[in-house]
C-alpha cells in the first residue's frame, strides 16, 4: 500500500468514524462509508491540508471513492 493510501485512509477513519478495515480502495464515501455531501467537502479540505494540494470544486465533485482520492492526490501533489 502506498504512503498516500495510508494517509488518506487514516483521514477517512478519523473524519467519518468508521472501522479501518471498511476503508478499502473501492469503497464509496456515500454508499459504503456513511458520508453525506458535506462530509466529502470536509474530507477534501483535510486532503488538501495533509498533502498540500489544491482540489478545485470540479475535481472534488468527481471524487466518490477512496481510490479516486488517492489517484487525484498522487497525480497532483507537488
Amino acid at each position: 500500500m502506498s504512503d498516500t493510501a495510508d494517509r488518506v485512509k487514516k483521514i477517512v477513519v478519523e473524519h467519518l468514524g468508521v472501522e479501518a478495515d471498511k476503508v478499502t480502495e473501492d469503497a464509496s464515501f456515500i454508499d459504503d462509508l456513511g458520508a453525506d455531501s458535506l462530509d466529502i467537502v470536509e474530507l477534501v479540505m483535510a486532503f488538501e491540508e495533509e498533502f498540500g494540494v489544491e482540489i478545485p470544486d470540479d475535481a472534488a465533485e468527481k471524487i466518490s471513492t477512496v481510490s479516486d482520492a488517492i489517484k487525484y492526490i498522487d497525480e497532483n501533489k507537488g
Binding site: E14, H15, L16, G17, G34, D39
Partner: peptide, 8 residues
Amino acid sequence: RVDHKIQR
C-alpha cells in the same frame, strides 16, 4: 450516545 462523526 453520540456517533463519532457527530461529536467531531
